[in-house]
Design a protein around this nucleic acid. Sequence first.
RNA 1: GCCCAGGUGGUGGAACAGGCAGACACGCCGGACUCAAAAUCCGGUCCCCUCGCGGGGGUGCGGGUUCGAUUCCCGCCCUGGGCACCA
Length: 944
Amino acid sequence: MSDADRPDTDDLPPHRYTAALANEIERRWQDHWEDHGTFFAPNPVGDLEVGWDQVGDRPKLFVMDMFPYPSGSGLHVGHPLGYIGTDVYARFQRMNGHNVLHTLGYDAFGLPAEEYARQTGTHPRATTDANVANMRRQLRALGLGHDSRRSVATTDEGYYRWTQWIFLQIFNAWYDTDADRARPVSELIGELASGERPTPDGRPWTELSDIEQRTIVDGHRLAYLDEAPVNWCPALGTVLANEEVTAEGRSERGNHPVFKRPLKQWKMRITAYADRLIDDLDRLDWSDAIKAQQRNWIGRSEGARVTFAAHTPTGEPRRIDVFTTRPDTLFGATYMVLAPELDLVGELAPVAWPEGTPDRWKGDAATPDAAIARYRAIAASRSDLERQAEGRVKTGVFTGAYATNPVNGTPIPIFIADYVLMGYGTGAIMAVPAEDQRDWDFANEFELPVVRTVQPPADWDGEAFTGDGPTINSDFLDGLSMVDAKRTMIEHLMADGIGEGTVTYRLRDWLFSRQRYWGEPFPIVYDETGLPIALPDDQLPVVLPEIDDYAPAPVPEGSDAVPDPPLARATEWATVELDLGDGLRTYRREVNTMPQWAGSCWYHLRYLDPTNDVALVDPAVDAYWMGETGVDLYVGGAEHAVLHLLYARFWQKVLFDLGHVSSVEPYHRLYNQGYIQAAAFTDERGVYVDAEKVDERDGRFFLGDVEVSREYGKMGKSLRNSVTPDEMYHQYGADTLRVYEMFMGPLDQDRPWDTKSISGSYRLLQRIWRTVIDEGTGALHVADIDPDPETLAVLHRTIAGVRADLESLRYNTAIAKITELNNHLTKTHPDGGVPRSVAEPLLLLLAPLAPHIAEELWARLGHESSLAFEPFPVADPALLVQDTTTMVLQVNGKVRDKVEVAVDISDDEARAVALGSPKVAGFLGGADPRQVIVRAPKLVNVVV
RNA sequence: GCCCAGGUGGUGGAACAGGCAGACACGCCGGACUCAAAAUCCGGUCCCCUCGCGGGGGUGCGGGUUCGAUUCCCGCCCUGGGCACCA
């Protein structure tokens, strides 16, 4: 038990660094920093310009955390890990002369806040405000050096006004594939009107009706309405983006089943940026793991589009375009499969089954139409989860129609099957069972022919062969390798006008509307045509209306009811009289809200210029802080690899294309911190028990007398293993908590929390305190003397090491080096009297990690101002050079002796020293060594 | 199945360019101080043999390169994360 666990006792030295003293010091310094605006970072212009003349010539550094949801349960000790990490870095670089911008805002819209509000029966605004206040209190107590003036919440009207403004920029933009960038739709309209760009059907622009013109433009916008199968979650009463649905086909929030439903929804054309989102990863300092995740998510596939000819029952020609990555196998395409939802399916199906149709193709239906209708109904009724649960057994039905293989003229049957997805490629495939396992499985189920077009190896006993081999049964491709066959086939398709090389992406456009209350309203209204109209900037923000019942309308599972967004119930708000340039008219407001991710896409920009109400961000401010590379260090969890991080990159690029920001990427250096995990304990029923009450005895765990079993998981309420920072400040102080969290291991690694181990960090700070202060009297304990040469050398080695470690975020080893220095001082100066010229740099080294105790001791040493801007110590290179070093003597690679030698010993001398060692000689046994490897002055290896 | 990350003492971890494996800390053992305990300080602590000196083994497993491998290469195993009917 540490002394912190018990009440202060009289027999402790009166000036010991106890938790109580630490708390007093910490409160005092937190007040000091706040009163002095210590962490206010000046902007070059605007409201936050104060102090610019003092720091404007310094290099800038923008350090950011992924901002939190203001959750109702407050923080546990796992949450601040990254925040402490960035704070250490920010403080370190501030001492190195940077103008450092570091703050923390709140991602306060979205499902978590709304769910919490529903559970507690209070309005999300009230719970959000209370939760933000509680988290600010908890984070302040950690001593985080944030610029409080820049701490925005996405729910502030002054914030979401600009979220809405950005939406309008995206709405009012289209992607010019020739210029490979977004441009304003006004320029598109200009090109259409001038004839420079043809209209879809070739008629002059001026001859088109207003609705026709608007429909064409709307079809180009980067934010657009689309009716398509989407992820519909009845339990949450909203649609979800692909990124919010788990592999099991459930909602990421709440784990509810998700179904496909065709619904008219807002989407963002992120697919237009697919290539740039991949290519620009190369310029980012991110881990390969996250880059790989983004590349995989975008899923670029090169292949070919191939046109197959088909016809309707009345003989009208229809083309079926497919995407394939294997155009080389076209001669092996023995049937086609269309996604069940494809409209074309209904046009192709004949009234009756063709003669000779096998029964198993008919799906027990009397006619193709009946078979198709039944199959579509079954597909729609199954959640993704159910589809998955049925494994890879292929289902489908024949449409009754045939297409023609364009390279050999063979008629091939057209099926529908749910293994072909509506949203990928063209929603239709050519099936090549010999070279695709899924097609093989389907062909097997339906007894369809298999034609091999790649020669498998002689010992091939498998089914589909997807490897490389000589092409066979393919006329002009025979004998070619896969690569050559692909290229040759694409050339052939282009020459015949029946296809071309093309690229397809796994990435889908971003589903951007939600049927929830607690989100940003869209700045969009509809007129009687039902087409969307952007509100002018001067009408922003569109304020989220107060309503009594903000709960979503849950729809029973399996029901086809259309979701009814809560804002539709704000009837007075949802209908509005406006003059948008042609007199006062009545409009309907968009009643969906934006998704959780909208606010987090651009908060780095609002941090820069939080009070600006005439622009998103002042260009001079943006240019200064974002430069061309963006945020200098961005720390957060890896779980946002394909959500927030992809969306934010997309918005940044749109804003860049439209000239609103200077950086093409938001986050230059990304660092993914690990998670703090904690032991959790279950009783024999598998129920979690309060981890704090569990005792360990002989490696077994007991709750009272009952044995419980241990597991590890994320810290949290559900596992009953939370430890809060509040408990830790009170028992040890915030500096101890900071040092411990940074000492537990590398920042990017998961680590198990162990409250017992925190005492090591507590003792370290107590020992450093004792280095400076006499515990008995409270008097200074340092001496104005010169350090001995060894201490001086240790100091400078420590400075060099700590500096390098902090620079690369290796805080655990930085703390180890500071510990070694202090241990050295304790050992060499057991009765105090450490030279001031050593104690002072020691405190500066400690300052980024444990700022309160460092400030306090710095002040007690007689300094009048905060050390926040004190230059971080620099090692004297002359003192890093040692005169002598330990040379290792090996025999056959095993260490046999060590000798102290001069660092500049020559190879010949080193060799002589080694061979002169009695221990080495003993192993030689009088024989001559076969070989002597000399790496003076570190090592000599004698090979016998 | 595919793509990442990782596997080192009782525990967290260190060894940054191929050269002393286990820094620093927790825990544990022993000692000093104390009536006693806590706190503090000192010493020990990878495993095995040995009273000691000393010796042998050891970084998930099996090979390889090298005078020398935790580090590089090949093949496996295990753990964690991501993706997954994406044509």
